[in-house]
Design a binder for these strands. Structure first.
Lengths: 164, 164
DNA sequence: CTTGCTGCAACAGCTTCTGTTACATCCATC
DNA sequence: GATGGATGTAACAGAAGCTGTTGCAGCAAG
């Protein structure tokens, strides 16, 4: 899978932050978020760093540090996340310039720019219609396995992702 | 640019085939198409091979071989080309499975599947609204440089891409 | 000052795409 | 049937991007 999972990682982190916040957990460390995403903490810091620069999350340094949402989950759209993580556009133009002495070679790039631009527009419109709160709600109603006996609220197994 | 240029290459090839056909040139060799796209002929054969399997172009073997459109340019949509070249979807899910003992980790994938699916749908709808004929028309009205003095109809400079 | 976490650079490994070469295959033409 | 030109495809190298990892400097609450 060469596809970009950056939008997925960032959205997962934001949804987890939103749920933690709702549960009264003010901040989460990058290690706790990484435990939920099941990846390395540095990956999470890179992703949350993008979101911080976009003003979607806040970070607290020093002891007892961690991350928290900068705005309400219902107010953060997937489009903002998409722009924040700077994912590559779905289609790329020619890697090398087409033959400029060819009628098609001369005009194909502006023509495709138009098509790709329209595609990107409808894509952005769709992303703008979904918020982090929407994603979290969808994720919570979609629980494939029943919670097990010893499941404490917020416990994430051997690798704790919520409780300190 | 890591982005996929396969859709771009395939569309360029089809537009060039459409223009050649309109000019009375029945077939083009992969070398002639490659001259317009400015790439290697094998790249073009790979791309046109995809389009052939999808029934969008025809190939003639043997002497005087070459490629031609299997249908009218106005009847081939960008969506068919997109499906033919099997471009990777714009977004990827987690590379490793999220923590299944986490509420968000459990439900995030179906939730994102829904969002990404809707995005893909509007993207496909937009691609279906554009035909090869549309692209060719756009390319021909978008000629950044004026044709030069010695410009023969269809000549593509040192590397001939049309006349045999 | 200590402690815990962030910020960031550097690097390895993996995957994908592009580009190139080489060679077998096919078929209209001679 | 032989020939020649073009396709079909495998194999490989190079480049780029992303993920994952380690290491270390910087910051701030207690």
């Amino acid at each position: 899978m060469a596809a970009n999972s950056r939008l997925t990682i960032a959205t997962h982190a934001l949804a987890w932050l939103a749920l933690a916040q709702r549960r009264g957990q003010e901040v989460l460390t990058s290690e706790q978020v990484a435990a939920s995403v099941n990846t390395n903490a540095v990956i999470i810091r890179r992703s949350l760093g993008d979101l911080r620069r976009a003003g979607l999350v806040r970070v607290r340094h020093g002891a007892g540090a961690g991350w928290s949402l900068a705005r309400e989950p219902g107010d953060i759209t997937m489009l903002e996340v998409y722009d924040a993580v700077d994912a590559q556009p779905p289609f790329g133009l020619h890697r090398t310039e087409p033959n400029p002495e060819c009628p098609v070679g001369r005009g194909i790039r502006p023509a495709l720019d138009g098509v790709y631009g329209r595609v990107e527009q409808v894509m952005r419109r769709e992303l703008a219609d979904t918020s982090i709160a929407d994603v979290l709600r969808e994720a919570l109603v979609n629980q494939p396995t029943v919670r097990q006996s010893g499941d404490r609220r917020g416990a994430c197994g051997s690798r704790d992702c919520s409780n300190s």
